[in-house]
């Protein structure tokens, strides 16, 4: 059923070696309007993969296509439709959230009227009205993450790439982020995200990819993964652990 949809992100033979291969010939295909969760044990290569897709790291081999654009040949065009958010929100201490959004809108060449409407919506939505004109220097991690998220959304990306966006957020903030992402997907946006909270993947993902040692070892909907892992497993956690264990045994 996915096959008829346009492809949002496609990587072929993606490879990055540090001392040893961190990403080892990865083929990922993510469709438009899909919520895709990338799971894997620590050091599996999730962050490395996403950083290559976001254009933060050059791959040693392979291709990346975002919305049909060759991201290695035309990085600026690919970045125009992409947003990146890491677990460590980096905002400028001396700028206010509003100025931060203004800066991001400038970088993405969003015209002022559009950016303004979106900024107002996002700030209201994320509950930042009271802090909209206060410098970020005293903000908690959750508040910074909200500002960074607003920055990622203010240019209306087609593909949102998130690396563990929920770490360190309280239940309310995490719920807010999840809602925002769900809403993006409902409106046709594509989300690829890594998380260690399996429950989030279970609830939110349309499809889940499991990687270990830089290779994709399983992919599919929750049910498909359960079946692949073996008849006995009930939860995603069981499935995940079984898959990773069998991969480790094979290696």
């Amino acid at each position: 059923m996915h096959k008829s949809r346009p492809v949002s992100l496609a990587t072929r033979g993606l490879r990055k070696d540090f001392e040893r291969p961190a990403v080892d010939g990865l083929d990922l295909t993510i469709y438009g309007g899909e919520f895709y969760c990338l799971l894997g044990p620590n050091g599996a290569g999730k962050t490395t993969t996403l950083r290559m897709v976001a254009g933060l790291l050059g791959p040693d081999a392979g291709t990346i296509a975002i919305e049909g654009i060759d991201a290695l040949a035309r990085p600026e065009d690919a970045k125009q439709v992409t947003a990146w958010l890491s677990d460590e929100p980096m905002v400028y201490d001396k700028l206010t959230p509003y100025e931060y959004l203004e800066f991001v809108a400038g970088l993405w060449r969003i015209d002022a009227a559009t950016a303004q409407a979106r900024a107002r919506d996002l700030i209201g939505w994320l509950g930042l009205e009271d802090q909209a004109h206060t410098r970020c220097e005293g903000f908690s991690k959750g508040m910074r993450q909200k500002v960074a998220l607003a920055g990622a959304l203010v240019h209306d990306p087609k593909l949102i790439i998130l690396d563990e966006p929920l770490t360190g957020l309280d239940a309310g903030a995490a719920r807010l982020v999840k809602n925002v992402l769900r809403e993006r997907v409902a409106r046709g946006g594509t989300v690829i995200m890594t998380t260690h909270i399996l429950e989030v993947a279970e609830r939110m993902a349309d499809r889940i990819g499991v990687i270990a040692n830089g290779r994709l070892i399983a992919e599919g909907t929750l049910d498909e993964l359960r079946i692949k892992a073996g008849a006995a497993v009930a939860s995603l956690e069981d499935a995940f652990l079984a898959l990773v264990a069998s991969e480790a045994a094979a290696a």
Binding site: T96, A105, A112, H133, T134
Partner: peptide, 17 residues
């Protein structure tokens, strides 16, 4: 210290990168 900027208008200025 929470420093509030004076500017409170919600008008974004158009800018190039």
């Amino acid at each position: 210290a929470a420093v509030r900027q004076r500017r409170t208008s919600l008008r974004l200025r158009p800018r190039t990168p």
